[in-house]
Amino acid sequence: MATPATRPSGWTLRAVVSAHLVAIVGQPVFAGVYLTGDYDSLHWHAVGADVVTSIGYSQLIVAIVVWVRLRQVWPFLGTAAVVAAETVQYFAGLDGALWLHVPLGVMTVAALVVQFVAVWRRPVVRGEARDA
């Protein structure tokens, strides 16, 4: 049997994870520039937080579709963890709880890098029924 091709829902997952990674990498950039005294970067950090969180929830929906259609649960589990972290992250940032915001931010970026590698490393194909 030839290597199965990535299905449309798999491609959507790849696209949304990639967009998510690009968006989240902007966050430490804006934070760093802000702390150099560029006030507008705080605004972009806040806009970035909205964008990242929105993409995160979109990714969650796509991951559910992948779970249902391709019987692959790991994208959903990974995404759920990232979205939970991002939600905490959002409010930790608003609250000024930097002890949580900074390390959790680093970990969320790292988790997304792992997801990015996972979705692009091999085709996102239909899994075995027992894998679901």
Partner: peptide, 19 residues
Amino acid sequence: ALGLVAATGLSASAALARR
């Protein structure tokens, strides 16, 4: 393992930070 590292890191931050 990654989850354990994350949990340890955040707990350490929570424990060490001045709150």
